[in-house]
Amino acid sequence: MTDQAYNFAYLDEQTKRMIRRALLKALAIPGYQVPFASREMPMPYGWGTGGVQVTAACLTPEDRLKVIDQGADDTTNAVSIRRFFQRTAGVETTERTTDATVIQTRHRIPEQPLAEGQILVYQVPIPEPLRFLEPRETETRKMHELEEYGLMHVKLYEDIARHGEIATAYAYPVRVEGRYVMDPSPIPKFDNPKLAGNPAIQLFGAGREARIHAVPPYSDVVSLDFEDHPFAASKADHECDLCGSAGSYLDEVITDDRGTRMFVCSDTDFCASRQAQGHRGRLSPQGATP
């Protein structure tokens, strides 16, 4: 049911070619923000226009697309983007991480380790890790050029001095291949270790800011820290109440007006797969098989 009024995956071929050139440059210079001529898309800026353009430039008719937001396939924005590509590209879609060839994500890296040949496309709101220390683009560009990253460590120093630890919980800055400091998009820092040495291609698209950056497969990605205050990935100290997983990132859900809570995997596919394999959590129905 492809919409014939538009080119395959919405964008015209010239635009896709332009984006692919930016992607190749980004892959060649890991962590470097490549300016690209971001197009106006039929969804608002800040809602994934960068990710959508990158996905559109990567998709082939044979691809199987998975779209997640907050780790889940069923959140409204994920549904909306998945439908967009169903309509304009007619590609097959899937919710299974292992089956997908291209995964567009907002705010999470899937729990299931990715494999060679897969592409993970991140939606990025502010690609510049130095932006909140220095608002001027002309200045931050210079800082990257000259590897002047002292200011970034001043921020981390201040966190420790004030809070006893680095008080950045998501969009935690990383250094890629020992060169560029990069914002990994607002993924929780729990996901940061998955950025490193990942066999998949990781592409980051920021539509409003017109920047693309990338982490090639098996790259060295280090979360910034101090020797004596090393980076630590953290999450809620619970197990998933549906699948019993102790090692996945959890959403906290308030289940009544007395403040009762439960914790469930934010990665819905991961949780469902575990339940299908028979794993049980604290609140799973007794004896029932899903």
Binding site: E148, Y149, G150, L151, H153, V154, Y157, E158, I160, A161, R162, F226, E227, D228, H229
Partner: peptide, 23 residues
């Protein structure tokens, strides 16, 4: 930025990465 951060900035700019030593 705190007094310590102000003094530490130049150290960090030239590569110091040990919080206790900077402090």
């Amino acid at each position: 930025v705190s007094a310590g951060g102000n003094v530490g900035e130049r150290l960090m700019a030239v590569g110091a990465r040990n919080y206790a030593a900077i402090r």
